[in-house]
Each structure stands twice: as structure tokens, then as C-alpha cells.
Design a protein around this nucleic acid. Sequence first.
RNA 1: ACCCAGGUGGCGAAAUAGGUAUACGCGCUGAACUCAAAAUUCAGUGAUUUUUAUCAUGCGGGUUCGAAUCCCGCUCUGGGUACCA
Length: 949
Amino acid sequence: MEYNFRKIEKRWQIYWRKHHLFHTKENYSSSKKKKYYILNMFPYPSGEGLHIGHCLGYIASDIYARYQRAKGYNVLNPIGFDSFGLPAEQYAIQTGQHPYETTRKNIQRYQNQMNKIGISFDWSRSLCTSDPTYYRWTQWMFIQIFNSWYDKKSEQAKSIDLLIEKFNKNGNLSVHASSSFNDKFDSKTWKKLNSFEKESILLDYRLAFLCKNTVNWCPDLGTVLANDEIKNGKSQRGGYPIYKKKMLQWHIRISAYIERLLKGLKSIDCSKSFKNLQHNWIGKNLGASILLEIFFSKENRKKIELFISRPETIFGMTFIILSTDHPLLEKITLSSHKKNVMNYKKNNTNTLVEEKTTISGVFTGNYVFHPFIKNKKIPIYISNSFPVDQKTKSIIGTPGHEKYSFQFAKKFGLEIVFVLIPEKEKIDHYNKNKNHEPYEEENGICINSDFLNGLNTKEAKEKIMQILENKSIGKKRNTYKLRDAVFSRQRYWGEPIPIFFKNKIPKTIPIEKLPLILPKIENYHPKNGKSPLVRVNLWAWDEKNMKIVSKDLIDNKYVFPIETSTMPSWAGSSWYFLRYMDVHNHKFFLDKKKEHYWKNVDLYIGGSEHTTGHLIYARFWHKFLKDRGWISSEEPFNKILNQGMILSSSAIILKTIGDNTFVSYGLKNKNNNLSFQEIYVDISLTNNNKLNINQFKKWRPEFSNAKFFLEKGNFFCKRKLEKMSKSKHNVINPDHIYEKYGSDVFRLYEMFLGPITQSKSWSDEKINGIKNFLNKFWRLFHKNGLFQVSELSPTFEEFKILHKAIKKLQEKIKYFSFNTSISLFMIVVNQLTVIKCNKRKILEPLVKLMAPFVPHIAEELWKKLGWKKSVIFSSIPILDPKYLVEEKITYPIMFNGKLKFKEEFKSNITIEQIKNKILNHYKTKFFLKEKGLKKIIIIPKKIINIIYN
RNA sequence: ACCCAGGUGGCGAAAUAGGUAUACGCGCUGAACUCAAAAUUCAGUGAUUUUUAUCAUGCGGGUUCGAAUCCCGCUCUGGGUACCA
């Protein structure tokens, strides 16, 4: 009988589902079974279906889950869907279909596909973020974040009520908080404030707060765009201009958690590069906040606070930049320069986003004094071309050591002073060279820096810090690249933010009234940069009756407007792994007892593209929930494994901007008058580099009457190898593969492509090898098409093959080396085929070893071997070391590091004996001849190297 | 531009303490079986060379008895850069 995967695989998939074999239960009673929680990447259910890149991770984690079960762990292996987000909304705008509907369909399809590749997910724990029973808790958590502040003393988030209590007692004098509020007040002052003033101050302490931030504003589309939707400074849809605009947005004070995010990295079992990436993303840097005297000072304002990120370059400071929204701008600017400054400010608030922004700025007419060079005046400019320090809204220009400052200095004819040179360079030599470029390296030796001269960067930094502090000019201050996270999205398809505005003061919707349901709408287009929710009529909060009412009733006394922005998709994806522990709990997001049992994730397998976004937010969110006492672990993931991405060749075509005309790629440079935008097309519409125009016209309604400029009768596109992703329309689906070859073949093939952590481009050319291998494996159990295994006792050699494999597999699984595990199986099957071994005592353990990789065929053979219960209930075979003893070792004999011949020695022989034997060996004598022996190196069980002159 | 990863036969890759480079698989070549094909089995397969041998792990250096592996400098490819997820 042939190995008929179609029949077999379907049968076992039904069997598993029918008997709920993957349902996981908390095991409180016996402490025998230890828990193991495996977390899978949270998929976004797109219309393109599950792709082979997702499968890579799911298959790997499934193998590990099944292996851990066989080792006796109680394994939690859940899956759910990150279903809020931009693509569904875009699709709704294009087709008018409600995202709720498309999402439901897509999830159905994903589920189907996952089942068809035999992944052992516990579907009873599935969830999706757009489900009100889920986002009710996301909203609840937002309210908790809103109602919290961060106490730096105890390094912990606490309830805002506690802070109010403190304010009433002693103002903020003894409060040490993460806050954007800079001034001090006592309890008397606090008590005198009206409620609006109090709320404004509290907002500066809350972990969720409102403040202005820059967005990408596209007036033609009437919306705020994601960076992803922008190509070369123009909107990807339509190619319209985009402006930087400040808008009031919700933020999360993630900066409060920075030190803990850094500290926690130490306890995570993950690659060095993962830690480096997160570390660099957080970007901690010690700088100094300095107070400098203003030259023309008005009234009592004599000094200005500035921030210097590299204090060791302080002698290289030749100008100061203030941002256009600096609070003291008007006071500092001289009246003679006021007009210029105000004009600049006016013209540069909403600036065009283009590929290259030209450097600009205006002189305020004023100066500060250099703290160490007597009477040296440093000019103050305003500009929006620099990334200013957020706290002081300023940046110090050191043109000798920073590119933009250099360009700025050149443009405005400002002094350029070099204060650092490379360590190897000589000062005279350096001074002779007049055409210096800015020296941006971190390490160097100080020059032109008075008392810092000759010191290296590190020494200079320490010394200058001390002097700044001693002279009370400045203080140490850490800066971080990681900024507070923007939490508002001017979009429809996301969790509504449970806030209403009572006379501009944000108030939370009462917890018992959650979830605040996302209303159904018909028009998904944004309106004047706001979410489509502004069109919803039933979107006002009646505070008295605690319900949602019509906006017509807004009187700002009892009825108030509800926030129309929605949450970003990272909100829902920051805690989903906690909900898996207790999906159906209607009373709370997670029961204490269950939390205590599962605690946190033991292994997370996910793409490295999530390292800096998702995995920072999730870690932050987790720490917050811990602080407020709802969970007990500090870090969400014990071990993180980054799977490599699967790359695919995308197809890109040229569209003329502002016109529904497309130009074949080869004609790109022949139409100098036209400007193009690049558009991704679905790879199924292409054949090699040629686009199928008829299919393309049908692809999207807006292209149905497009015009095309051909090349020799063909329309060519550009190909580009990049990560497989729905947004690039280069997704390859697993469906046709498992339908043609079977799921076990597909699983093995994905794992056989290469190491799990490495990115790889997709091709299914080599899948035959895997198919052959599984046939060969099947044939071991069959003779003339009939199942036949021998009950005879295996020989020592046969046992040796088996036990060597058991040992090697242990090592390979430990390193998640699934590709070499498969090579190992191939070698074993080849060896057994050669010696024609079909003995039960060898084949049965082999089935158990392979079952996590190829669960369907393993179940079938297991049944044929006479077992009634699923192979899932069997345990991994135990290693017997007596079969691993090697009596002889073959040494390679090398001469000056080059292999000449091999020689076998007994494993218990001494090094001295080996030396004697090998030096007297006739081959050694032949190779050495007249050459003089210099040395002989013998590394036990490895090599022998003979060195000669 | 910055941060992270990778580059080994015709191809996917192996070589987790610096110690036999190319395991395993694909492809290709040849043979057996067959009227034939498929499937299967066997043999061969880094390059140059008749052999001896020499050269080969992106490029150029270095450390070492010995380097794919460690160090320095480049280069190409991929990922991330904060509203794709």
C-alpha cells in the first residue's frame, strides 16, 4: 500500500479535533507535570491568507510543543488574531465592505489553513483583538494607565488617587515622579487651584496623557498618514504632498519604564543581537543640562537652560538652536529680529515632507555666554531642521563634530571649531589640513579645549561633568532615544479610547460601562484629519444616565463629546499572551489562580522585525500590570527566539503621478518630463517580469480604465527581493503545497530550508527530496505494499543507530536546529534501509522521535504498530549510553596543518603512545624525509598535527 | 545615515569550545529494472590537473602549529528606524 497522505492526514486532523487532544488545562493538583507556555507570533488576518513565513514559526513552535509534551510538560500552545489595523480599514475604503465582515472571513480562512498543516493549537483559547469581549479589557487597561503615575522612589506605577492625596498633604515637594511637570508647589497652592488647573497638572503626571505631536498630514486625502503609506515624501495613494503638523494626541509615558526595560533585558534568554537592538533603540546617553547666561536679558530672566549631549565637546559649541515652539522665544528674541523670527515660525509650523529637507533657520539677535571662554558670545538661532532635546527644546551646535551643525554653520557663516581628533592623528598634522569634514566618531582626543586638552573622550566627559557640577553650571542628565509612545490614531478600525471631554478635561468612561463598542459606520473615509468616528451621531456621553447618546444632546453640562481617535494596534497586541491563560473570564482579564499557574511565556518564537516595536511595548505593558498588582512576573517572555523572515520577489510597476497611466519599467528614464510613483502589484498578476494587464485591470476598480505604455508589446515590472508581506503583495500561500504534497511534507520542507533564525528566499524546487524521504520512511514498515515489522531482537549495531539518533536529536532540539534534525532522520532511515532493518524495537522509538515533526504519518504508523491511543500520549525514547561507547578513534594526521592521511587508534591509548606510534609510522617518515621535525601537536579525540621546517 | 543579521559547490545548506571544509538534500551524469515511462535501487559529482599535487567558505589584511569560525578595513544582500503588523 502506498503512502496516501490525503486520506491519512485528513483522518488524523479530524481525530485530533474530535478528541480535543490539544485542549490544555491548568494542572493545579499534581506537581508532577510542569507547565510550558509557548507563544506564537500574533498574526494579522489579511485577505491574502496565511503565508509560508507565518507557517515557518508555527511549524517550529508546533514541533517544540509536541516534543515538550512528549517529555512530560503541560504545554500551552495558543493562537489568536491581531485583527484591528490599517489593512482592513484600507480595504473597507476601497470596497465598502465592513472590516468586521472581512476580518471574520479572513480569520476563518487562517484557522482552516493552520489546521491543515497539523498545528497543535488549543483553539478553545483563541481570541481576537477586535472582539468586544477582548477589547473591553484593553480599554480597561488604558483607563488604569490613565489613572496611574510613576513613583521613581519605589520604581513603581501607583494609583493617581495616591498622588492626589500626596498633593493635598504636601504639594509635589516630596513627590519624585516621572512627569512632564517641572515646577514645584505646596499643598496650599494645590488646594487653591480650580479643578481645570488641577486636572492639567495631573495630566502631566498620568501615564496616559495628552500633548501635541508631529504627524504626517495629507490635505488631499484629508488624513494623517503612517510612514508606511509615504513613499519619497509623497502619499503612496495618489502621490500627494504631505506636511508635518502638530496635533493633540494621546501618549503613553513609556519613558518612566526605561531603566527597568534596560535592566530586564539581562534576564531574558535571547540572542545578543536582540539585546543590542533593544538597547540601542532605548538609546541611553549621559549628557548635561546646563544653565547659560543670556547676553541681552530682560527682567529677571538671566539664564537659559540648554542641553548638551556630548559635554566633552563644549569648547566646540559655536551656536544655539531653539525650536520654534520654545516657550521663551519671544522674550529672548530682540525686537529688531522679531519680524524675521515670527515669519519663520509662521512659515515653518507645517513643513513639507520631502526626501531631502534643506537646512534653514533665523537668528534671534541674542547670544549666550560661553561658560568657559571669557566674553565669548554664542549666537542663538531658531530652526526646525534639528532634532531638538524635548525637555529644553534646544540643541547645541558643535559644527566640528556633527553633520547638520556643520551644514548650518557653513550656510550662516558661523565659526567651526574642531575639539576632537582621532587618537592616532597628530595635532600639527590635523591643524595643517584646512578642509576638514565634521569628525563624528565617539572616541578621540581633545584639542582646542583648554583644560580638557589631551584627554580622551571618556576622561574628558568625566572631568567636564565634575567641573560643571562643582561650578553649578550644569547637572548630569540622561537622555534616551525611546520617546513616549503616541497612542492616538485618527482611524476607524481600532479600539475606541474610553474617554469623554468634560469642558476639555479628559474623563474616563466608567469601568462598569465597558466595553465602549466601536459603532458600525458606512463611510470609512477620514474627515479633516480626524477619525471617521466624528461622523457618528451616537457618540456623546451622558454622564448622569451613564450611557451613550446623540451628539445633538451635547450641552457640556451633562452630555459631553467622546474621544474620536482610536487606539494603535500595539495596544491589543501588548497583552494578548496574558488573555490566553484565561480567555473566557467575563469578570476579569485574568484570574489570579490561573496567572499563578502559567505566570509568563517560556518561549516566544517571532520574527526579528518585531524586536523594537511590539516587543518593547509588550514588555512595558507587562511591567505596568505587575506594578498595579494584577500579574506577578516582571518580564513577559523568558526566552525569545527570532525566526528569520521568508523573502519573496515583489513586483513593482510605474504609475505617472496624477494620472491613471502606467509605464513599462524599461521606459523609466525615457520620460524625463513625467514623475512616477512605484506601485506594488500582486505577484500572481505577473509572469517573470511581465505584467498581465487584463488581470491587473480587474485587480482594483480604480485601475479598470488605466492606460499603459508598453515596451515591444510587453509591460515590464521591477522585481525586488524583500520580506513576504501583504503590503508588498508578494505573499505565497501554503495551500497549493500541502494539497499537492501533503502537510507532513510541507512541515518538513519548511524546516529543511535552513536554520530557523536565518532569513531565506522561497522556492519549492527542492520539495521532492522531502517527499522521497517520507516514502522511504514509510517503506521501512512495508514489504510488497503490506505492513510488516519484525519482532526479532535488534543487534547491537541496530541499537547503536537508534541511540545515537536519540542523543543527537536531544542536542539539535536544544539549539532549535530543526533542519539538521531532519538530516539526522534521513541518515537514520538510509542506514536502516541499507541493513534492511524492520524490527519493532527500532522502528517504534523512531516513530516517537519523528512524531513532533511529521505528526500525521507518525499517527498512522503508530496505529499500524498496534497502539490504540494516539502517539501524542507516548513519551520520548530514553537514551541508553551503553550503545554510544566508541572503541576506536580515527585521527586525521596533518603536516603543517594539511591533512595527509588518517590513522585509527584505540580510545584508551595515552598521548605518549600515540606520539611514538605516529612518529614511527612509515607514512610519517615518507612525508618528512629530510625535513626537520619541529613539533608534534596532539589534541585528544581531535587531530594530530606534525610541524616541520 | 544609524542599529542588527547574513554572504560556504550549479542550488538549499552542514561543520555550537579555533582542529578532517562541503554532512544531509536538490539538481546533474551514468548504470540496473521496464516494450516504454514513472517509481525505485546502485555509482559518480567543489575547481584546475593524466598523476603527484595545487587552489577554494563575499573582497583585502592580521593573529595562530592550525581560521568558514577570532581581530582590523571594505563590499553586497536582507531587517528595523517609532501610524504596516
